[in-house]
């Protein structure tokens, strides 16, 4: 019987315990990613994780693949160079909601437009966890954070609609509650060529939960579970209810050619290996 690879091939067990708070879903997301890599049997040296800055941005410290940890919001920009420098790599960008969509928003929309072959895994915990719970571009309207003590006045981005509009090839949303679905979407995104986004609705009991969800870590997880519903259930809701929910599932799955394929087609001299010498 073929021995299945274990997530331990990718997860740096000796770095335990994780730095994250009790009930923070980052560890669950990390497990889903390392399980997905094991299912796909991609050798660790063919994977680079490029992390942003934030609580989720610490994930590279727990990975045994190649790792990159740069500056806030730039995981995709560094990742673009990494991918184009060696097109054989699987580049996985791990970003928080603030990292990917506020400071990194410009890189995000252009990575999607270009359809660069990178998998973006966004931990959406609706807040800036690392800096103490300020509002982010995904904090729901009127929710409380340390910088919106009465309620945030800005509407939130829908990460998946944004990704779709900008041109991503694959867009899926799941949660740290729906762990098997989450892993399935991550594996699909890694396998697919082009810019692929998995939004993982995540828990931050310490900041988002404390100010908005009565109860403990378990109630924070229940919130994540309850706001997330399938497309078919979502469509039956009235507008007011719709505003309180997020659709989970594979939302986009198309085959636009990725950046490098188009670049090589237009510049036929650009060799497959990237090592050929011209004239």
């Amino acid at each position: 019987m073929a021995v299945k690879l274990s997530y331990r091939e990718y997860f740096k067990e000796e770095a335990l315990p994780l730095m994250w708070c009790a009930g923070c879903g980052n560890g669950i997301l990390l497990r889903a990613i390392t399980d997905a890599l094991a299912d796909l049997e991609i050798p660790p040296h063919q994977v680079v994780v490029s992390t942003g800055i934030g609580c989720w941005g610490k994930a590279d410290d727990y990975m045994k693949t190649h790792g990159f940890h740069g500056s806030h919001g730039r995981a995709l920009a560094f990742g673009t160079g990494i991918k184009l420098g060696n097109p054989d790599l699987h580049v996985i960008a791990l970003m928080g909601d603030g990292d990917a969509l506020a400071i990194g928003g410009n890189h995000f929309i252009h990575a999607a437009r270009r359809n660069i072959d990178i998998t973006a895994i966004i931990s959406n915990n609706f807040t800036y966890g690392m800096t103490g719970g300020q509002y982010s571009p995904t904090t729901p309207l009127s929710y409380k954070t340390t910088t919106s003590p009465i309620g945030v006045a800005e509407p939130a981005f829908d990460v998946c609609s944004l990704s779709e509009e900008c041109g991503a090839n694959y867009v899926a949303r799941s949660t740290v509650y729906h762990v098997t679905q989450l892993k399935r979407f991550i594996a699909a995104a890694i396998q697919k060529k082009g810019f692929n986004v998995v939004e993982a609705i995540n828990t931050c009991p310490t900041h988002f939960g404390r100010r908005n969800i009565p109860g403990d870590t378990v109630e924070m997880m229940n919130y994540v579970k309850e706001i997330s519903i399938s497309k078919s259930r979502y469509e039956k809701l009235d507008e007011e209810e719709k505003a309180k929910h997020l659709v989970t599932g594979e939302l986009v799955n198309r085959d636009r050619p990725d950046f490098l394929s188009v670049y090589r087609e237009i510049n036929p001299a650009a060799s497959e290996t990237g090592r050929g010498e011209g004239k």
């Binding site: 990159f68 500056s71 673009t80 160079g81 990494i82 184009l84 420098g85």
Partner: peptide
């Protein structure tokens, strides 16, 4: 960022 990334890729 991209030139740093590409250099790390060799």
């Amino acid at each position: 960022a991209a030139i740093v990334g590409a250099s790390l890729s060799g």
